[in-house]
Each structure stands twice: as structure tokens, then as C-alpha cells.
């Protein structure tokens, strides 16, 4: 029942989108233009949904000054892949179960999508997803980063993520001592 209802709703949204224009043009911080399906953009990004609903979409390219072209390309790529690979019914049922399972495992294609990204591209994509309110993409990228961290020592994490150690020696020692308690370590 719900599946059919979901399809129906999605089709309705699509019809509404087609009534106007079915893509939106987004402009990156460095001026590159990207086309993305209006339906997918509205479905996957709360910010773009708000802009589309509020009519603040510019046909000549909506300025997204916070997002570089590489990240925006990935965002658009993700939206398109999402529109193609996941039937809208599956998405709706996943959003229903969202409350019970706060972190949903990424789909196989989503895994592949983030696996091919360089570290920098991945982090830029997290920022873009965060900025655009793309919950699902944020979920997938954060999942990937947490996977990258697993089993790594704090030193290795700093190295991989290019984080400067801003602790003093004394502070580091203090925290280590706390951890000695935590891990029953001498």
C-alpha cells in the first residue's frame, strides 16, 4: 500500500516539476554551471527544496558561493545517481525507518560513490552536503570518514586528516593518563 502511495506521490511531484522546468541550474563558487533534476534536488536537499519552493532559483544559475566546482559536481552526480538507482518508494520507506535507525547503512552504489573520492574531495563534499542540508549524502560521507578512522591511532588520524596536534606535551600526558584508567592499562 505504502509503496504504491509513495510512487504516486513522487509522480505527482514530478508532474509539478515538469509543469515548470524539470531541471535547476546551480553555479559553483568558481562560476561553473551544473544542471540537476529539480525533483531530485528538492527531494535530497532541504535547502534546494526551500529555494525551489520559494522561487529563489535563478534560471541562469543559482549561485552557491560556498561550494567549489569539484564538490558541486559530486553533489549533482550524487543527485542524478540517486534519482536513477533508487526507486522513490524505497527512499520513502527508508525515511520512515529513519527514526528507529539513526544511521542507515549506505547502499552499495553509495559506497562506491564515496570510495572513489580523494580525501579532499570527500571533505569538501561533506561541507557541501552540510550546507545544502542533504541528510542522506551527509550520512553516506560521514559513514565513509568514520570507516576511515577505525583502528587508527590518534597519530595516524592526525596524519590522514591533516590535523595539527595543538596540545601541549603536558596536556597530552594528562589525557593519556586518563586513558590508562579507561583501558585498564598501566
Amino acid at each position: 500500500m505504502e509503496v504504491d502511495k509513495g510512487k504516486g506521490e513522487a509522480e505527482e511531484t514530478r508532474k509539478v516539476a515538469e509543469a515548470d522546468r524539470d531541471t535547476v541550474t546551480l553555479k559553483s563558487s568558481d562560476g561553473k554551471l551544473f544542471e540537476v533534476s529539480k525533483e531530485a534536488a528538492a527531494r535530497l536537499s532541504t535547502v534546494l527544496a526551500g529555494m525551489i519552493a520559494g522561487g529563489s532559483i535563478d534560471d541562469n544559475g543559482t549561485d552557491l558561493k560556498q561550494i567549489g566546482s569539484e564538490a558541486l559536481e559530486n553533489v549533482v552526480d550524487y543527485c542524478n545517481k540517486h534519482a536513477n538507482s533508487i526507486p522513490s518508494a524505497a527512499l520513502i520507506s527508508s525515511s520512515i525507518s529513519f527514526n528507529t535507525a539513526p544511521f542507515k547503512e549506505p547502499e552499495e552504489w553509495e559506497r562506491k560513490f564515496v570510495d572513489r573520492l580523494s580525501h579532499d574531495a570527500l571533505f569538501d563534499l561533506v561541507e557541501a552536503a552540510n550546507f545544502l542540508g542533504m541528510e542522506r549524502l551527509l550520512d553516506v560521507t560521514c559513514h565513509k570518514i568514520s570507516e576511515m578512522m577505525k583502528g587508527k591511532s590518534p597519530d595516524q588520524i592526525r596524519e590522514v586528516f591533516n590535523i595539527k596536534n595543538d596540545y601541549t606535551k603536558e596536556e597530552l600526558e594528562e589525557i593519556r593518563q586518563e586513558l590508562a584508567w579507561a583501558f585498564y592499562d598501566d
Partner: peptide, 27 residues
């Protein structure tokens, strides 16, 4: 690494509580 704090929280919440204590050493 300059992640939005919300995203960093999201990432850290996916780690086990014990491991999360360990990565307090990062910065």
C-alpha cells in the same frame, strides 16, 4: 581538516564510546 562541527559530531557518534575517548587525543 575543516569539517562543519555538526558533521564531525555525526562522524564521532558512529565510533564506539571507548574509541571516542581515545580520539580525544587528536586535537
Amino acid at each position: 581538516l575543516n569539517l562543519p562541527t555538526d558533521a564531525l559530531v555525526d562522524i564521532l557518534l558512529r565510533l564506539s564510546p571507548i574509541y571516542r575517548r581515545l580520539v580525544r587525543l587528536v586535537c
